[in-house]
Design a protein around this nucleic acid. Sequence first.
DNA 1: ACGTTTCTATGTATGGTGTACATAGTTTCG
DNA 2: CGAAACTATGTACACCATACATAGAAACGT
Lengths: 255, 255
Amino acid sequence: MTTRDSKDSDLQRSLTLLWTERRRGQRGPRSRLTVELIAQAAVRIADADGLDAVSMQRVATELGYSTMSLYNHVPSKDLLLEVAADVGAGAPPDLGGTADFREAVRRWVGALWAGFHSRPWILRVPLDHAPVGPNQLAWLDRLLRPLLAAGLPGGEARAAALHLTAVVRGTAQISINMAGEHKRDNGIPRSDADLTHVVAELLDPADYPALTAVHAAGLAGPERADGDALPFELGFGVDRFLDGIESWVAAKSGD
Amino acid sequence: MTTRDSKDSDLQRSLTLLWTERRRGQRGPRSRLTVELIAQAAVRIADADGLDAVSMQRVATELGYSTMSLYNHVPSKDLLLEVAADVGAGAPPDLGGTADFREAVRRWVGALWAGFHSRPWILRVPLDHAPVGPNQLAWLDRLLRPLLAAGLPGGEARAAALHLTAVVRGTAQISINMAGEHKRDNGIPRSDADLTHVVAELLDPADYPALTAVHAAGLAGPERADGDALPFELGFGVDRFLDGIESWVAAKSGD
DNA sequence: ACGTTTCTATGTATGGTGTACATAGTTTCG
DNA sequence: CGAAACTATGTACACCATACATAGAAACGT
């Protein structure tokens, strides 16, 4: 144990490790292992074989160290996963050139959406703390800029950013796994589309009137995602939200 | 193994178990254990000690059975958790008497929000399949009704419902654990409010201009959640979204 | 009524997990 | 040049999900 200071919490300790580069001037041998290296290895494994494949043993052997070495740099697996999620998130897109705030937000949403698609395991990392990694903060910052530029005061911009982040995250969680590449059952890949049919047979239309109505009407959905357009399931809600924001700031400024 | 039909997938099998009550007329002794009982036990444990405390052993001993008995009724722990999440969600609120569609949606959102607060472990159950439990479908149905009544066509109502579900789920995931009753560090409870301060010291304002601006302005937030009002962090976005929906249907019908 | 079938519940065993703890070795400071 | 402090390692433990074989009981066909 490092035991630098007993009041030093695990969380704060690992936070400092994340934010400050290697401190120098300590006694022992300098560590060849770093939090970044460990997190990157975890990301590599999660990318290749999913989040469940990330175990301390696997990460350690991936790096060529013993399992317990990791605990010199990371207090627990849970925190390692949070750090890995931050590392895996990467840097946010640069929206500097986007004048229209709607377009900027849409691009931000699209980038996050794409990120969740390329690393779906991030959605499965349980978040135990407020987002606090450098990349997560950078993403948030990049979203806040167009919202502030649009004329929202601080508190409302924060709420709007939370709303958008939550929408993308929640929508991704709900709809990504429906595509279900990774899902195979008895070796047969199974898209959840069939599943809804299976259920449809079982449920009583009287109990779910709205659902059956929508189900009947909703099958004609040949959605196109040309270029940077968002898929309809995500884009419709985002557009309505931006409509609302726009008229909100218009009403306030015209007030 | 039941091996009723080799094409019968695990998922479908457990779905059938969830939806159809106990079939009769089989050979062996009727089972005293049921999926519902098992799921309820899992819910009880998760309520008491969190999702991590839910193990097959614990569930079994809670019911007074051996560990392996559970596998006669549930194909895997993962599916058990999904069923438990559905059971734990409970029945949706009855919005029958609410004439205003905005008010109905807000009440639905508030109820789901409250549900996630009272059972935060539901947010940690990884969802591997399209929502398909009876309760989840009931919640969805109840949300679709006011949206359809407001004049949205099927596909848009579905997208709007997805948006709202995702918002509540995502916002809950992000902001619930910030309250962090369960979080204690070195035995000292720690609300993540301090945490942001710790980070604030570390980060360079030049890198996160929007964030620091919002942070400076945003501290004056004595939000009140009187009665059935939603907290500002959630309510602002929902209200803007509903604004957008309203003007959308108005524009369409006036068209 | 009876044997056969078919189901439930159990016990045992296996390979994996996160991590507490003690130790050996190495680097830097006083 | 000791001595302190740090890194990496090895061992050990409790627990986990679940594959598999078995025992027993209930309902069916006769």
